[in-house]
Design a protein around this nucleic acid. Structure first.
Lengths: 205, 205
DNA sequence: TAGATTGTTAATCGATTAACAATC
DNA sequence: TAGATTGTTAATCGATTAACAATC
């Protein structure tokens, strides 16, 4: 085990492992080898072993990895073993879709607030949550112990919303708006932009 | 210029350049240097020059890149200079959000069909498009010259839908379902999974 | 001309893969 | 025990960055 420096590439693969392991658990598979994982996920077995070895010795030589145990370990590495409250800003079509989606996750990550600055939307119920005014962001974040923000506002508004999130003490942001966000060094932003995915896909036609 | 082998990483950055160049064009900026681009996009200027040089000599020494010209070139590389018809399968919340979103793109990429296998949804209008039965996929793809498919069905149904797309002659698929897809070598799949983004984001808390 | 900036080569850095001793 | 599979070191591969001649 080395706590030296975990690369982003490794961290990005952990949820992939977790997802597949959850599938194995459902069909009562007890153990799995890096070989099997690699085949299922199109990855090199050595890479999988190396990834996991960054965090400890989770496997048994000659046997493989115990599914339940490995799920627990990965969840703990990803901090998914504790409740993580999320605020979503922007109650448009995409925000609506995402909040409905997360309802089905039996995760510890949960959207506990949906905010918008359109007075016409306040009070409406989406995915069982009442839409609240953006003005109340800071109080809501503090009162509910929110640690993650999701931005689903139009590109023009994204940087402003981002600044508000940072100001409210949020250090982890998932941005769906098609724009680069400027944040302090201690804030982490992940982007999801399906138009960029479509455009790069187009190259391979 | 080298037509040798363009890495995925390069292709993924092209839409990023394009997006920023479009912004520059709107505010009437005529030329831009790799230095400026790098600052705006948090990339190394040398990397940007190298990326672009994969496809030709688009800049002028001492001057930089002409915005209009570079936009044209990148669009052409990404094949966005020609109309690309897209079919979206799965008229749930997410499909709804995406189809509405693309309406606003002044792209050549356009969703020209939305399919679902729920009889109750057939004929409903989403983003100006009438939802059609999944059964008609092959005919619709052929009749409308569709070349890209977007999958927004639940994970359980994704592989089956993917197989149908491949069978219909689609070679480029954007998958939103949280599952790995098996496709022949000549089919390209890009994944967008925001739960995986959320999970990897959680690591950095 | 002098200053700026490209395209490209060489150097560096990091990530992936192969190989194998350890051991279940 | 024999076969399987890990954890880890070493080798390879590829991507990023630095440096600079060419030139606008």
């Amino acid at each position: 085990m080395k706590t030296l420096k975990i690369s982003e590439a490794v961290v990005r693969r952990l949820p992939l492992y977790l997802r597949y392991l959850n599938n194995l658990q459902i069909i009562n598979v007890r153990t799995v080898s890096s070989q099997q994982l690699g085949e299922a996920l199109d990855l090199n077995p050595a890479q999988i072993r190396k990834d996991l070895a960054c965090f400890g010795e989770f496997g048994r030589k000659g046997i493989g990895y115990e599914v339940d145990y490995l799920i627990g370990k990965i969840k703990s590495i990803l901090k998914l073993d504790q409740p993580i409250n999320v605020v979503l800003i922007g109650a448009g079509h995409l925000g609506h879709a995402i909040s409905n989606y997360t309802v089905y996750l039996k995760d510890n990550m949960k959207i506990v607030a949906i905010l918008d600055n359109d007075p016409g939307k306040i009070g409406h119920i989406t995915a069982g949550i009442s839409i609240e005014p953006l003005d109340h962001l800071k109080e809501i974040v503090e009162a509910r112990g929110i640690r993650v923000g999701i931005i689903t506002v139009p590109a023009e508004a994204a940087q402003k919303v981002c600044d508000l999130l940072v100001d409210a003490g949020i250090h982890a942001i998932l941005n769906f708006a098609p724009t680069n966000l400027r944040v302090p060094d201690d804030v982490r932003v992940h982007h999801t932009d399906f138009t960029m995915e479509l455009h790069s896909l187009s190259y391979y036609l």
